[in-house]
């Protein structure tokens, strides 16, 4: 099992902390925390679910679809900031802690 813990301060934005575990190349647990804002707030659970159900190459598209369709507002980070975290850590060692 891979455990990844990443903290990223978004330029002119907020702090994103992403913690996830991978099992057989699929993310099976994820928690996104930080001092950002999402409206409505409960959308965070849908965002995490989409990440669990998506491949990395389709993640940005699926997140954008959900956000646009449901008029979700992200303040302090963008979808691409979140996706970049997964792209940057995808090939890191099995236990990754920045």
């Amino acid at each position: 099992m891979d455990i990844r813990k990443i903290t990223k301060k978004i330029k002119k934005g907020k702090l994103l902390r992403v913690e996830y575990t991978k099992n057989k190349n699929r993310i099976d647990h994820i928690k996104i925390t930080g001092d950002f804002f999402i409206y409505p707030e409960k959308a965070i659970y849908h965002i995490e679910q989409i990440i669990l159900e998506s491949n990395l190459n389709e993640l940005e598209c699926k997140l954008n679809q959900y956000i646009n369709k449901n008029k979700i507002k992200l303040i302090g980070f963008k979808v691409s900031d979140l996706v970049d975290i997964f792209k940057a850590t995808n090939n890191k060692p099995k236990v990754f802690n920045n």
Partner: peptide, 9 residues
């Protein structure tokens, strides 16, 4: 703490 924050962290 904010809605999205982890108390533990």
């Amino acid at each position: 703490i904010g809605y999205f924050q982890s108390a533990k962290k």
